[in-house]
Amino acid sequence: MRILHTGDWHLGRTLLGADLLAHQATFTDFLVETVRARGVDLVVIAGDVYDRAIPPVDAVRMLSRTLERLAATATVVLTPGNHDSAGRLGFGSGVMHDRVRILAEPTSIGTPVLLTDDDGPVAVYGIPYLHPDLTRHALAAVPDEPLARSHQAVLGAATDRVRADLATRPGTRSVVVAHAFVGGAEPSDSEQDIRVGGVDMVAASVFDGIDLVALGHLHGPQRVGPDDRIRYAGSPLAFSFGERHQRKSVTVVDLAADGSVTVELVPTPVPRRLVDVRATIAEIESGAHRADADAWVRVAVTDAVHPERMYARVKDHLPHALAITHEPADRPERPAARPVTATSDPVEVAADFVAFATGTAPDDDDRAVLTEAYEAAALAMHDDRGR
């Protein structure tokens, strides 16, 4: 069976204020053509199709049209990610076309989509993003005995349900589509924090016994472990300058009769490159960076004195510049502030602020309060997304 693995589309996202929807449309056109040209049987989309729980109308229309086009030639299985609202994304899943299956309900994780090819049956299980506080009761094996408050516990319970169902289907190959942060993989700087109790990762061993694990959440395409059995497809576009060197792709997997996999990474289109430029205003105006005029650029102007009309002069030569700052090359070195990115620990960011505002680092009691406040806010956010 030929499977195309993708995810983390983040439809409706912007990049430093720049609308990405037209570039995302370029990707979805490429995706549909790739599925047709390569004879793909199954498309799996591992979450974060939208960038937020209530996406823009244009993003909803794009997803609807893309699923319709994909379903003309392949079966599509989609699971929600931490950016999606599982309730909204999964609405109507029970009455959808057989070729489009949205697996959004945690308590139905052990019920697969069953497909068949010349080599026999394939069971496809969807594991949506599982927030421990929202699923530790629903996934508990014993009523009134909730699971531990961790990603490892809830994802382990989910895959136990998968293995229990597989045990009733001898000779069936297995595919799990999941949205999670699995240990051994490298994050980027644009994924949203999902940690609870300071822990966000799960062990790859949680997927033991599964033939193919198609993951979403991390934006860099990569495998987890020594072979291609567990993989992140990565995002189809760069969503931050920190991702500018990643080679974005979709993953085409051939699942053999014995459950082994062969993988090919198919590069996705790059509608506009991301480039960093550090130069004086004279160097920029000389045309030294004219090759980057069509790129999205983050510009640091290094003149000793702030140039007059700096922003307008840079934009004259680099019209797609998204960030323009003045960083004199001879400025005295200052201790670098710890950068805050999507992968920063929110509690550590808050602790840094407390130290800055009070002149004293928070003690253990202060950190406990910060942790409790952050986790309450994160739970409220995810609970709202599920409504």
Rank of each mutant, 00 (worst) to 15 (best):
L63H: 05
I54M: 11
D118R: 13
S150M: 03
V76W: 02
A148P: 08
G110L: 00
I54V: 15
R136V: 03
L130S: 01
L42G: 04
R149H: 15
M62T: 11
P106Q: 09
V44C: 09
T116K: 12
V76Y: 00
R69A: 15
A74L: 05
S150G: 08
V142M: 08
G81H: 05
R88F: 02
V76P: 00
Q152D: 14
H97E: 14
H83Q: 11
R149Q: 11
T75A: 05
E105H: 13
A59G: 09
V95M: 12
S93C: 06
T135I: 11
L78D: 01
D51M: 07
R136M: 09
L63I: 10
V95A: 12
R99D: 07
N82T: 12
Y50L: 03
R101M: 08
H137I: 10
S108C: 13
D144L: 10
E68H: 13
D117V: 07
V113I: 12
D118H: 14
G120E: 10
H83L: 09
V49K: 05
D118Y: 07
D117L: 09
R52V: 10
S85T: 02
Y129L: 00
V60S: 11
T75V: 12
G81C: 12
V57D: 14
V100E: 06
E105A: 13
L147H: 02
L70A: 09
V124D: 02
V95R: 11
P55L: 05
P56T: 05
T66S: 07
V44M: 06
L78A: 10
D98P: 15
D58I: 08
V43L: 07
Y50N: 06
R61P: 06
E145W: 09
V142A: 10
A71L: 04
P143K: 10
L134W: 03
P121V: 03
A153P: 10
L70I: 01
L67R: 02
D84Q: 10
P56M: 04
P143W: 12
A72L: 13
R88G: 03
V100R: 06
D48M: 08
L147W: 05
E68W: 11
T111R: 10
T111N: 09
T73D: 14
A141R: 14
A138T: 14
D41S: 15
V142H: 06
A123S: 11
V49Y: 11
I54Q: 13
E105L: 10
D48P: 01
A53K: 04
D119S: 13
L134P: 01
I45V: 15
R136W: 10
P128A: 01
L115Y: 11
V43T: 00
V43P: 00
R136A: 05
D58Q: 15
P132F: 01
Y129E: 01
L63C: 05
D51K: 02
P146R: 00
D84A: 03
L89F: 03
P80M: 07
E145V: 12
S93W: 08
A53T: 07
L139C: 08
H137D: 13
A123Q: 06
D51R: 04
H151T: 08
G94E: 13
L147C: 09
A46W: 04
P121H: 08
A59Y: 01
I127N: 01
